[in-house]
Design a protein around this nucleic acid. Structure first.
Length: 395
RNA sequence: GGGGGGAUGCCCGAGUGGUUAAAGGGGACGGGCUGUAAACCCGUUGGCUCUGCCUACGCAGGUUCGAAUCCUGCUCCCCCCA
């Protein structure tokens, strides 16, 4: 059996911070002595059920804990989601229904199992509605554990406060509620991205106020999205989801700026072959596809990529659409709009800018009405990556 | 309770009676270059039956030949004082 010290060092090897210093080691040691598992907590946002590579960084870390025999506790913030998050300008964020949250949670779980071990002794899923729906007296007790000054320590709060930007009371309460989650599940360790550091540490304060041992905190670096700068997130459109098809994964990886490659190799724990940027990126892409779809898919994705972008040929699998028209000649903007789900004006623009090809040949930007045969059964392409095989059907 | 400020296109943000579908930036998209990288250049970015028409500047009404711009009411938001 490994010593607690070396185990801690292993777990901390690619973490951003492990707080407090030596905290994780002590936890491991104590658990070892008592012959019990550590309870390792991760909070989830049930409004964003799509797991992407950014999430997997944290999930991989949880998996390491599982492999060491510890128990992962995923917490779905269903209660907090129902209340709605007032932060920023997301005023339109809908309060999710119970069923929607439940469905999202199950979907998340299913995706998480691509990385986590679903074994019941190593895994647990909880909803914080279980304990957060508390009487006001209990909320008061929770509220007493922290001061405004403490909360204002959090960078985004202090920045917003200083600039006169609004901060709702509810927002201030969020870290407390998250901290209470730790109390409720008796977390020994909590994991999260570095952007969660404050909240994770506050969990310790809350636990202490409830006479509980304080959790160790392990933060992991944030994975930049395929734009190479911003945090990966679905809404920013810079994410690669674990459910994305192989071709999509590979292609998106190839769009990653070179500067971000080092970070990706490191955070995703993929072996860096070094060498030329283009080759390195390809091997990064292959490794990512392989991780979620297997080696065959990886090879296939790369081949399809070459075919489409190196040899400039249409991909092998093309979505087929049937477009209904009134008769000859066909109105190009209308057909394109239907085939690619864009507005007719958009289609016109694309056409006018020479962005439309049929069987690889650019379409005359002036062409508006054409014979049906020009399109029927052919591969129509918009830009570099949108292809549709179009069947024209006269109504 | 009192006073002040604000709501503009995907986002930020100009615009205070007329050539404003609305400056500028970001993002996105198309073209060029290329390694679906970066950098750079060009173009587009409300809709449509497209040399024109329709709809749009929080919501509803009003003034005017004409309003994002003026008036009234409403909704929402922010700041300051108490």
């Amino acid at each position: 059996m490994e010593s607690a010290g070396s185990t801690a060092a292993f777990l901390e090897r690619n973490a951003a911070e492990s707080l407090p210093a030596g905290g994780l080691e002590k936890r491991l040691e104590k658990a070892g002595e008592e012959g019990r598992q550590l309870r390792v907590k991760l909070g989830l946002d049930p409004t964003a059920p799509d797991i992407h590579l950014g999430h997997t960084v944290v999930l991989q870390k949880l998996r390491e804990f599982q492999d060491l025999g510890h128990r992962v506790v995923l917490i779905v913030g269903d209660y907090t989601a129902r209340v709605g998050d007032p932060s920023g300008r997301s005023d339109t964020r809908p309060a999710l229904s119970g069923e929607a949250i439940e469905a999202n949670a199950r979907s998340y779980e299913e995706q998480a199992f691509r990385i986590l071990d679903p074994d019941g002794s190593l895994y647990e899923l909880r909803f914080n509605g279980e304990w957060l729906d508390m009487p006001m007296a209990d909320l008061f007790r929770l509220a007493r554990t922290t001061t405004v000054a403490q909360l204002l320590d959090r960078e985004d709060f202090s920045a917003r406060y200083a600039s006169g930007a609004p901060i709702s009371i509810l927002e201030l309460l969020y870290p407390l509620m998250q901290g209470y989650d730790s109390v409720a599940v008796e977390a020994d360790v909590e994991i999260g991205g570095t952007d969660q550091t404050f909240n994770l540490l506050l969990g310790r304060e809350v636990q202490r106020a409830y006479d509980q041992p304080e959790q160790a905190v392990l933060t992991l670096p944030i994975l930049p999205g395929i734009d190479g700068t911003e945090k990966m997130s679905k809404t920013k459109g810079n994410a690669i989801a674990v459910n994305d098809p192989p071709g999509e994964m590979f292609g998106r990886t190839m769009r990653l700026p070179d500067e971000a490659m080092d970070t990706w190799f490191e955070l995703l724990a993929i072996d860096d072959p070094g060498g030329e940027p283009r080759e390195r990126k390809r091997s990064l892409g292959r490794a990512i596809v392989e991780r979620f779809h297997g080696p065959e898919a990886a090879t296939g994705a790369e081949a399809a990529f070459d075919r489409q972008f190196v040899d400039h040929e249409a991909p092998e699998e093309i979505e087929e659409v049937t477009v209904e028209v009134d008769g000859e000649p066909v109105h190009l903007p209308a057909v394109l709009a239907d085939a690619f789900s864009v507005s007719r004006s958009e289609a016109r623009r694309l056409l006018g800018q020479g962005g439309v090809r049929v069987d690889g040949d650019p379409l005359d930007p002036e062409a508006i009405d054409v014979p049906a045969a020009t399109l029927d059964g052919r591969v129509v392409q918009i830009g570099r990556r949108q292809f549709r095989r179009v069947q024209v059907k006269v109504r």
